[in-house]
């Protein structure tokens, strides 16, 4: 680990100020489940590490007005074990329960996960699949506009994720095919029937989370597992590594979509 200035602001405003003044060298840390290993391996060299751990207001879960709003510092374990989330959006609780291992779930946060935009993370499928809204210290960003590519988001310099709000769907299901080694998503699918229509979001398969419009259309007509049979995703732009070829990932998108719909009921 290289040396850095450690800051622990007491307010969101102070955190934003610290981040802005640190410029390119500033880095936020919440649960640290990606950043700390990266630092330990000397793969990142931030000048300033701004610890959001003091911003207690950013943690917590609220269910009101047909929405589940989860504070950015809420851990995966808290989401997974929240009776309110389990009741309102069981698929979201199930997603959180399948992230990493107990240690990761007890430290990792939803804000950190969405801001990091790892192509193999679970939350991007949840956020896009459920049509969530990302709240920041400056504005709100619709899920479809938030994830812009590999490890990139619509967040501007100095902008901090404060919460993610999920409209409660009529039905939703999540199915994940984990990487056998890392347990990140090789392919995972969130399928949801919402007031605004059906959404099918895929994480792990591509450079960034994406929706499968053809499946959404088919499910819009007939919400049933069989509706996605035969709908293929082209392997052309999908990820490949030693664990899964692009063809295999493309195949798994179909299998996981079907299983997500089965899970949704």
């Amino acid at each position: 680990m290289y040396e850095f200035n450690y800051q622990r602001p007491k307010s969101l405003a102070d955190a934003a100020k610290a981040l802005k003044s640190a410029g390119d060298g500033g880095k936020l840390v919440a649960g640290g489940q990606t950043l700390i290993p990266t630092l330990k391996q000397r793969l990142a060299q931030p000048s300033d590490l701004i610890d959001l751990g003091g911003l207690k207001d950013l943690a917590g879960i609220k269910v009101e007005g047909g929405k589940v709003t989860i504070g950015a510092l809420t851990t995966h374990a808290e989401v997974a074990h929240s009776a309110a989330v389990q009741k309102a959006i069981p698929a979201l609780a199930a997603l959180a329960e399948g992230i990493g291992d107990p240690q990761v779930r007890n430290r990792g946060t939803i804000g950190g996960s969405v801001a990091n935009a790892d192509p193999a993370a679970d939350y991007p499928a949840g956020v896009v699949g459920l049509g969530a809204t990302v709240h920041t210290n400056e504005r709100t960003i619709a899920a479809d506009q938030f994830f812009t590519g590999l490890f990139t988001t619509a967040l501007k310099p100095g902008e901090i994720v404060t919460a993610v709000s999920f409209p409660v769907p009529q039905k939703a299901g999540y199915a994940k095919f984990p990487n056998p080694a890392s347990r990140y998503c090789v392919v995972a699918v969130m399928a949801a029937k919402t007031a605004d229509g059906v959404r099918v979001a895929v994480t792990g398969a591509g450079p960034s989370v994406f929706r499968v419009k053809e499946m959404e259309a088919a499910l819009g007509k007939n919400w049933a597992p069989a509706a996605v049979d035969g709908i293929k995703v082209a392997p052309a732009n999908l990820n490949q590594d030693i664990h899964a070829s692009a063809e295999y990932r493309a195949h798994l998108v179909g299998v996981m979509a079907r299983r997500a719909i089965e899970a949704a009921g």
């Binding site: 056998p180 080694a181 890392s182 990140y184 590594d241 030693i242 664990h243």
Partner: peptide
């Protein structure tokens, strides 16, 4: 797994599956 140039592809627990 090594790649053909001799780089160790499975150099950590992220890719080497215990």
């Amino acid at each position: 797994v090594y790649d053909k140039d001799g780089q160790l592809v499975t150099g950590s627990m992220l890719d080497y599956c215990m």
